[in-house]
Amino acid sequence: MQHNSERNNNSKVSDTELNPVDAEESQNNFFKRLPPEVTSRIFSLLDVQSLCRASMTCQSWNLDIRLNDSLWKPHCLALKAVCRKEIEDDLKSGYSWRDILLRNYQKSKVKLEWLSGRYSNICSPVDLPEKIMCPMDAETWGEILEAELKRCKNHKDTIASRV
């Protein structure tokens, strides 16, 4: 019987391990002790959605992520294929890479779908999926119109060659 009580005394868990608040504080201290280059490197491996989620974890991560332009630049450059002019204009206007991404992310998705012909068969504004639409400037709509006209011309040429 004495052997069991010794084992119970030896297997006690520290108060820190039992208290989740202390454990969380200990974990936060661990991340705060990491060199900024290490946390920056870790954050640079995240996609946009994960980066945004990580920024909601705590205030220090939010600041580290929000203020680190080098984290946002690669994501903006990935959008540049679709929104080249918009991104170049935003850069000239002095926007940060994060702000450029915020300004153009949804627009790039919608623009890419238009340019790829996703909405070519829409007959009326009622058929447009309103939830995915976003405001775009006249030049962007001009690019979309050019792509639609080119697609229409190619379609007519294909039909004419079959006849």
Rank of each mutant, 00 (worst) to 15 (best):
V110T: 09
D64G: 10
Q27N: 03
R103D: 02
C83F: 09
K32P: 00
E17V: 14
L112E: 06
S108D: 09
P20M: 12
N4S: 15
E37N: 07
E88Y: 08
Y105H: 10
N8H: 05
L128S: 08
Y105P: 02
P35C: 04
L101P: 01
E148F: 10
F30T: 07
D157W: 11
P129F: 08
G94S: 13
I87V: 07
K111T: 15
S44V: 03
Q59D: 08
S96G: 00
A147K: 07
R66M: 05
S60Q: 10
G117P: 12
R7E: 15
S108E: 07
K156F: 11
S70Q: 06
P125F: 12
S40H: 13
T158K: 14
R53F: 09
S120I: 05
L91M: 05
D137I: 02
E86M: 12
L101D: 04
S44R: 07
P20L: 13
V48H: 07
T57D: 00
L128V: 12
M1I: 02
W61D: 04
T16W: 01
P35W: 00
D47G: 13
W97Y: 09
P20A: 13
I42T: 05
L145T: 11
S161D: 12
D137Q: 01
L128E: 06
M133L: 15
P129C: 05
E37T: 04
E6T: 12
S124V: 07
K80I: 06
